[in-house]
Each structure stands twice: as structure tokens, then as C-alpha cells.
Design a protein around this nucleic acid. Structure first.
Length: 524
RNA sequence: GGGCCUGUAGCUUAGUCAGGUAGAGCGCCGGGCUUUUAACCCGGUGGCCGGGGGUUCGAAUCCCUCCAGGCCCGCCA
């Protein structure tokens, strides 16, 4: 059974029919590919719950109340003044990285494009801005409980995580006079007000029913589980480690009066491109960029096809072809779950694969066969390289019977992504079509006399015929017959001459694209 | 030091929760296709399931132990 379906079944037994899957993100601007695993894991469990007829929601909590932790490389020095301030309350950077006081908040600025990217992979969560949950008082009860039980919480954190907390540690961080929560000391609590004094010596009070402060991370996480009734939130393995935030979160959540979700941990995902690894070359790739290169169902398949506790190497180089092939083959020839001939194991594998395919669809419930848009990933990679204009690509697809009429938007997006990939550093060199200008000596040595005669004869024919796909194709065959070699030998010779390999894309299309002059020069 | 995860064919892996003769894809080799869109079709190759021990009629699967790799224990998924 697929892990998402298995989880749905388990959740149903543990928590009944009402399910709330959740994932979160800090909109600091530093997104990485791992967020996709977190989000898709939660979203797929949500879909599996729906498919199991459970009443499921998927919420996406944006940590907009989290403080700016440091001045990131893409920010100007002016952001120094905002360190410690909630991301929802500080201005977004403009194109030069300077704060733009007239625009949207920092949190919204980075969140927008990210949500757009999620829509591309068919993820439409209920978005919860965490600062709003503070603002509208939903946190108040939990904050009060946390303050009342501060000693117990402190003990939980200290005993489970092994960290030692300061004597003046307090389970609530109020905002100081400058809006930052750094170095603000709590001086007292009179429900619902927390009294504080900040680093400038200014004092004030924070109303726990408003967004005038927040719970520290480990408590915030535990509290929100209760507030939103979250039954499932996959967490990265860092949280899952002994003493990590999951282990402290479970008892804290109970202490605050709610039932926590059961522990669920996923492994890391790492990016490998065609070039050297990120640290040395800066050849790294974020989730938004990845979605600009890779077909969305392939991204989903990457996550859906791997078990949660399995480390994923996301390779944006040649392995993409393999992954796309695998997906397309699966879709074209889905395993027959009903077959009587399968052993138990084969049956389990078939069901798992079918589940992965189902969960890889952008639109829930749509037919997987429609996702490939009638053209293979490999084929499109070839066409995108030899056809400069999109119109010519569609023309070629119509000729080959892959396309009827106008391309749909899925296919157009596929081509756009393919072009992005090809022009990026990630595209594998050995997939690049390199057309030679001359037949080199090495190639000549590999060919027999008949093949060489065939090539030079072909060059002469090419300078005379009509320059069309069909004509070129016919000429190759007739010339081959005249030279007394088989179709196979003739094509092998032609590909070796043009590409230095024995195989290639359809020869006539390729030659048409090369152009008469270069083709004749090459063969003569 | 404490803990988590992983180790199955050259590569990527399924199967481990519910023990019942090791499955797949890629690669490779051979054959087919007298129009080769890196194609497609057919056949073949390949595994003491990390090592050792235990439980069992029976273990990749459960238990113990060792080895190897990755990771966490600082608010990095």
C-alpha cells in the first residue's frame, strides 16, 4: 500500500473521520527544495484521506509571526534595524534589497510567488497566517496556559532536549518598543497582560489576545496543533531526532489541553545538478526554480514514488530523463492490480505504484494518461533543441501525429520548462545535440567503403532535391538502396557522421533543421 | 556522549508495519524491425536481501549483536 494511503488508514483508526493535515513554512525568503517534500507529504496524506472518504482539510501555516533572524544576502544593511521583528510587520525589500515602506509586508512578499509555485503542482492549501491567529486572540488561551504552567514546560524542555534554560526564561516573547522581541525581559503577568522592559529601558505591556508577542518556537508549534485540531504534520528528521521539537511538542501539547498529532518524520531531499555540487559552485536550485524546469507531475512523482524515510537525491541532470521515462512508462502501461497471476509481493508493489501514480496527478482524480500530453519528455527535449520557434515544434508534432490542432496549456508549459532546462547549467551535456560540421577521421575509420560512398552520394543528392522532410527521407532510402547497404547500416553511418553516435532523432527532421548548405558541407 | 534513519542485481529500488519459494526499472548481451522522433518488440544476463547469532516447520521481514554510510541533539525541512 502507498505510504499516504497507509497513513490515512492509520489516522482514521487513531483520530476518526475528521482529519487536519498541516505543513508550515517561514517566509524569510530562503526557500529550499526540502519544503516541497514537507508540503507534498502533507498534501498527499490529505488527498489520501479524501480518497478514503474522510473529512479532511489541508492547512498551510505561514510563520509570519517569526522574527527576522539575520540580514540575508539579498537584503540591504538597512534590515539590521528589523532583526527580531515579526516578518508580518516589516516592509518587503525592493529590487535593490532596500525596505519598501509603501509595499506589502515582508512575509507576503515572499509568500506570494511561493504559493503561485504550489498551484503549479496542484497544491491549494488553506493558508493560515500565524500572526493573524495571534491577532484575533486564538492563541490567548494557550498562552495563558503556558504561562501558568511555565515551570512544567521548562522542565519538559530541559529534560527532553537536554538544553538548559535561563532563570529569567519565560514562555512568551513580547515585542519591545521598537517592535523587536530580542532582549525584551518580562517583568510580570496579569492576565491578559504581560509586562516587559526592553533593551533601551523602555517598559510596556503586551496583550496576549493580540499580536503583541509570541510563544517561543517549541511551544508555538505545540499550541497550534491544538488550536487548529491538527492530526497530522510530517516533520523533517531534524525535528524527529531525540530531544527535537517533536519530542518536546507532544507533552507540551497535552499539557496545554490538546491531543497532539502522532510523530511522523520524513528524510531529507537533496539536489544534484549536472555540474558540481552546490557548495563549491553555487550550482544549487530552489523549489521555485525547480518548478520552472521540471514538469509538475514529475516533481510530485519524485515525492510520491519515494518512501518517507528514504533519502532522496533530486537530480536535475540526466536522471530527469530516467525519472520521466519511468513515469511515462508507468502511466502508459499501469500495473494490473486485479490480476490473479501476481504473487502477494507483486500485488503489493502494483498497488503502491498505482497509488504513487494517482497522487502524482496535478488535479486530484484526473486520469494519469492525460498528464503526459501525448509527447514523451525525451522527444520534447530533442525537438526543443532542433526547433528554434515553438510554432515549429508544434508543426513537427502534428506531422508525427503526436498533436492534433493547437497545443493545450499543459503542453505549452512543458515546452517552456524544457527550454528553461536546456538553457540552464543543469541540462546534461551528453543529451545536447551537437551537430558536426565535418566527418572526422575517427568516424571514417569506423565506416566501411559502402557507407562512405553512401554518405558522399547523399551529399550530392542533397544539393539538388527539394528541401523538405519527405524528400530528404526518400532520398536517404533511395540512395542507400543504390549504394547496396541496408537501411540500418545507412542510418548508422548517417548518425555517426552527423552526431558521432549510432543513434539519434529522426534523421530527416534533423537534416531539414541543419539546412541544405551545412548538410552538404558535412557530407562532402 | 545520546538518538534517528538507511544498507536487497553494475545503478535506482519494491517487498520489512500484518514471516510463507527474492520482484521491477535502468544498464549490459543477443535477436527482430528492408521509413530509427536517443524509439519499439522479443529473449537473456545478473542477488549467500551488510556480517554473525537467535526465535520459528519456515526469516529480507521478528529479536540480539557487530560493521558501514547518512543525519540530528543551536528556532535550518
Amino acid at each position: 500500500m502507498h505510504w499516504a494511503d497507509y497513513t490515512a488508514e492509520r489516522l482514521s483508526k487513531e483520530r476518526g473521520t475528521k482529519q487536519v493535515a498541516c505543513s508550515g513554512i517561514t517566509p524569510s525568503g530562503e526557500f529550499h527544495i526540502g519544503h516541497l517534500r514537507e508540503i507534498l507529504s502533507a498534501e498527499m496524506i490529505h488527498r489520501a484521506c479524501l480518497d478514503a472518504d474522510l473529512d479532511s482539510r489541508y492547512i498551510f501555516i505561514v510563520d509570519s509571526m517569526d522574527p527576522l533572524r539575520r540580514v540575508y544576502p539579498f537584503l540591504s544593511d538597512e534590515y539590521e534595524q528589523f532583526i527580531g521583528c515579526p516578518l508580518a510587520f516589516i516592509p518587503a525589500p525592493d529590487s535593490e534589497g532596500k525596505p519598501d515602506y509603501d509595499g506589502v509586508s515582508y512575509a507576503e512578499h515572499f509568500l506570494g510567488p511561493f504559493l503561485d509555485a504550489l498551484a503549479e503542482i496542484g497544491v491549494y492549501p488553506e493558508v493560515v497566517m500565524n500572526h493573524e491567529t495571534y491577532q484575533n486572540g486564538q492563541f490567548a488561551k494557550k498562552i495563558d496556559a503556558a504561562i501558568e504552567k511555565a515551570d512544567e514546560i521548562k522542565q519538559i524542555i530541559e529534560s527532553i532536549s537536554g538544553r538548559e534554560l535561563d532563570d529569567n526564561w519565560f514562555p512568551y516573547k513580547p515585542l519591545g518598543s521598537d517592535g523587536s522581541m530580542d532582549e525584551v525581559t518580562v517583568t510580570g503577568y496579569e492576565k491578559p497582560f504581560v509586562h516587559w522592559i526592553d533593551r533601551y529601558g523602555n517598559s510596556g505591556t503586551a496583550d496576549i489576545r493580540k499580536a503583541e508577542g509570541k510563544l517561543p518556537w517549541r511551544i508555538d508549534w505545540a499550541a497550534r496543533w491544538g488550536i487548529h485540531g491538527i492530526t497530522c504534520e510530517p516533520a523533517g528528521k531534524d525535528h524527529g531526532a531525540a530531544g527535537g521539537s517533536f519530542d518536546t511538542g507532544l507533552p507540551i501539547c497535552k499539557l496545554l489541553g490538546s491531543e497532539p498529532p502522532s510523530k511522523m518524520v520524513y528524510e531529507w531531499i537533496q539536489v544534484k545538478g549536472a555540474g558540481p555540487m552546490s557548495s563549491s559552485s553555487g550550482n544549487t536550485i530552489g523549489p521555485i526554480e525547480a518548478l520552472n524546469l521540471v514538469p509538475p507531475e514529475i516533481i510530485r512523482y519524485l515525492i510520491a514514488g519515494s518512501k518517507m524515510n528514504r533519502h532522496i537525491d533530486f537530480n536535475t541532470g540526466g536522471a530527469l530523463f530516467q525519472m520521466a521515462d519511468e513515469y511515462e512508462r508507468l502511466v502508459a502501461d499501469p500495473p494490473n492490480i486485479e490480476s490473479e497471476e501476481l504473487t502477494k509481493r507483486q500485488k503489493v508493489a502494483a498497488i503502491t505504484q498505482t497509488g504513487a501514480m494517482r497522487l502524482s496527478q496535478i488535479d486530484r482524480g484526473s486520469n494519469p494518461a492525460e498528464s503526459v500530453a501525448g509527447v514523451s519528455f525525451r522527444h520534447l527535449a530533442m525537438l526543443a533543441q532542433i526547433k528554434a520557434s515553438d510554432e515549429d515544434v508544434w508543426g513537427s508534432l502534428r506531422n508525427s501525429g503526436h498533436l492534433m490542432g493547437e497545443p493545450n496549456s499543459a503542453l505549452k508549459k512543458r515546452l517552456t520548462r524544457m527550454r528553461n532546462w536546456i538553457s540552464s547549467v543543469h541540462f546534461p551535456e551528453d543529451a545536447r545535440i551537437q551537430i558536426r560540421s565535418k566527418i572526422d577521421d575517427e568516424t571514417r575509420a569506423e565506416l566501411n567503403d559502402n557507407q562512405l560512398n553512401f554518405l558522399s552520394e547523399l551529399g550530392e543528392q542533397f544539393s539538388e532535391i527539394n528541401w523538405s522532410d519527405e524528400e530528404i527521407s526518400t532520398t536517404i532510402r533511395t540512395t542507400a538502396a543504390k549504394s547496396g547497404i541496408s537501411g540500418r547500416e545507412s542510418y548508422t553511418a548517417l548518425y555517426l557522421a552527423m552526431l558521432g553516435r549510432k543513434h539519434g532523432p529522426k534523421a530527416s527532421a534533423l537534416i531539414l533543421e541543419i539546412g541544405r548548405k551545412d548538410a552538404v558541407d558535412l557530407l562532402s
